[in-house]
Measured scan of single mutants.
Amino acid sequence: LTELETIYVTKEHLQETDVVRAVYRVLKNCPSVALKKKAKCLLSKWKA
């Protein structure tokens, strides 16, 4: 997740890969609050 925060991701990348699905899975299933927060921030950033 940290690496995903530092790289530039285009909408095309998100549509062509399962990155969003994987990050969403972390948000829903990971017991770590810190990782959930990171995943939520990434998804919000990409949605904007």
Rank of each mutant, 00 (worst) to 15 (best):
K47P: 06
K11G: 11
K45P: 02
L27E: 00
L4N: 15
A22Q: 10
L14Y: 09
L4H: 12
K47L: 04
T2N: 12
K36G: 09
S32K: 08
P31R: 14
L14I: 13
E5K: 05
V19N: 02
L27S: 00
L1F: 11
T2L: 05
E5G: 01
Q15Y: 03
C41D: 08
K47E: 00
D18T: 13
L4P: 15
A22S: 11
L14C: 12
T6I: 00
V33Y: 06
H13P: 09
Y8W: 05
T17G: 09
K36Y: 12
V9H: 13
R21G: 10
R25S: 07
A34T: 08
C41Q: 15
L14F: 10
V33K: 15
V19Y: 03
V33E: 07
L14M: 13
K38V: 11
K38R: 10
D18I: 07
E3D: 07
L27A: 03
T10C: 03
C30W: 13
C41I: 08
K47N: 03
S44V: 04
V23T: 09
E16T: 09
P31F: 15
E12D: 08
L35F: 06
A48G: 01
E3P: 04
L42P: 00
T10I: 02
N29L: 11
L27N: 01
V9R: 13
L4A: 14
D18R: 14
N29T: 12
T10S: 09
Q15H: 09
L43I: 14
H13V: 02
T10F: 03
E16C: 10
C41A: 14
Y24Q: 07
L4Y: 06
S44L: 09
A39F: 14
L42Q: 01
L4M: 11
T10A: 11
W46T: 02
K28Q: 02
V19T: 06
R21D: 01
H13M: 09
V26C: 13
Y24E: 05
A39V: 13
E5F: 05
H13D: 12
L42G: 00
E12G: 03
C41R: 13
E12F: 02
V20Q: 02
L43G: 00
K37W: 02
R21V: 00
V33L: 14
E12M: 03
R21I: 00
R25V: 01
L27V: 04
C30R: 04
V23L: 12
T6L: 03
A34E: 06
T17A: 05
N29Y: 04
A34W: 08
V9A: 13
A48T: 13
V9M: 09
Q15K: 14
K45I: 00
V23P: 01
Y24V: 13
T10R: 10
R25Q: 10
R21M: 06
K45H: 04
V20T: 05
C30N: 06
V23Q: 00
K11T: 03
T2R: 11
K36Q: 10
L27R: 01
T17M: 14
L14T: 15
K11W: 09
S32A: 13
A48L: 00
S32P: 12
V23S: 03
V19P: 07
H13N: 12
A22C: 07
E5M: 02
L4W: 03
K38D: 00
Y8K: 14
C30Q: 08
